[in-house]
Amino acid sequence: MSLAANTADTAQTAASAVKADVQNQVTQSVSALDQLKEFLLNHGPDVIYAIIIFIIGRYIAKGFKNVAIRMMTHANYDHTVITFVSQMIYYAIMALVILSALNKAGIPTNSFLAAFGAFGLAVGLALQNNLSNFASGLLILIFKPFKAGDWVSIGGVEGSIKGIQMLNTAVITKDNKTVFIPNSIITSNQVINSSYQDERYISFLFDIGYDNDHHKAIAILKDIFQSDKRILNADTMEIGIKEFADNSVRIAAYPKVANADYLPVFYDTMSRVKDAFDAGGIDIPFPQRVVYVREEKKEN
C-alpha cells in the first residue's frame, strides 16, 4: 500500500508541476500579448509612418540612382565607375531613410548618428584629395563645361576629351598621348573649349615687308577668302593692318567657319596665301639684324 501511495503522490506532484508550467506559459503569453497590444496602441501609427517613410525613401533612392546613371552615361563615364558611384549614392540615401524610419518608430538613433559621424570624419580625412576630385567630377557633370569628344585646353594641356571619370578626366593630345587631369584642377582653372560653339573664328596674322603694297596684299587675301565656300563671313570679314612690327607690317584677318572646318581651312589658307604672295611679289619678311663691324686702328 505504501508503494502505491508513493506512486500516486509522485504522479499528482508531476501533474501539478505541469499544470503550473502551463499556467505560467499562458500567463506569459497573455502578458506578451498585452504588451504587444499596448505597444501597437501607443506606437502603431508611428510604426505605420516608419514603414511608409521606408517605402517612399526606397523609391527616391532608386530615382536618384537612375538619374546618376543617366548623367554619367551621357558623360561617357566608365561602366565600373557608373556602377560604383550609383550604388554609393543609393546606399547613402537608404542609410538616411532607415535612420529616419527608425527615429519615427520611436527607436533611439543617436548612437547610430554618432557612429556614422565618426566613420564619415575618418574617411573624409583619409580621402580628402580624392573626395575633392569626386565632388569636382559631379560639378563637371552638372554644369557640363565640356563633353566627350570636345577639343579643350586645360592648364597647358590641349586635346580631345576621352572621358570624365570619377576622380579625373582623360584627355587625348594631338600626338595621341592620354593625359589624366584631376577633376579638382579642372574646376579651379581656366578651361578653353574650342568645340562649345558651332562656329569659330580663325585668327590669322600675315607679315609683309615695309616695301610691299599693303593694299595689294589685302586684296589678295580677300580674293583667297571669298573663293573659299567654307568661309561664312567672306563679304563682311574683319581684315586690315593690325600693327607695324620691327621687321614687317602685320595684317590681321578673322574668317568665320564651321567648327569642323577650322583646321582644314586654316591649313589650306596658309598654303594658298604663300603661293599667292610669291606670285604677286609680296615678301614675307624674316627677322633681320644689321651688324656694324668697326676696325680698330693699330698703334705704331
Rank of each mutant, 00 (worst) to 15 (best):
P145M: 07
P145T: 04
P145H: 11
P145R: 08
F146Q: 06
F146T: 06
F146V: 06
F146L: 06
F146E: 08
F146C: 09
F146M: 07
F146G: 02
K147A: 07
A148I: 03
A148T: 09
A148P: 04
G149A: 02
G149Y: 02
D150C: 15
D150T: 11
D150S: 15
W151M: 13
W151L: 13
V152W: 00
S153G: 08
S153E: 14
S153C: 12
S153L: 12
I154Q: 02
I154G: 04
G155R: 10
G155E: 11
G155I: 00
G156E: 01
G156A: 02
V157Y: 12
E158T: 15
E158L: 09
G159A: 07
G159P: 06
G159V: 12
S160K: 12
S160R: 12
I161T: 08
K162N: 11
K162A: 09
K162I: 14
G163C: 08
G163A: 14
G163I: 12
G163R: 15
I164R: 01
Q165L: 08
Q165R: 10
L167R: 04
N168F: 12
N168L: 08
N168P: 10
N168I: 11
T169G: 03
T169P: 03
A170P: 00
A170M: 11
A170T: 13
A170F: 04
V171C: 07
V171F: 02
V171W: 05
V171Q: 05
I172E: 14
I172V: 13
I172G: 00
I172A: 07
T173G: 07
T173Y: 11
K174Q: 15
K174I: 15
K174F: 14
K174D: 15
D175G: 02
D175C: 06
D175F: 05
D175L: 03
N176V: 13
K177A: 12
K177V: 11
K177Q: 14
K177M: 14
K177S: 13
K177L: 13
K177C: 04
K177D: 11
K177E: 15
K177F: 13
T178E: 11
T178A: 05
V179E: 09
V179I: 15
F180E: 13
F180N: 15
F180D: 13
I181W: 00
I181D: 03
I181E: 02
I181T: 01
P182A: 08
P182K: 04
P182D: 09
P182W: 01
P182H: 04
P182C: 02
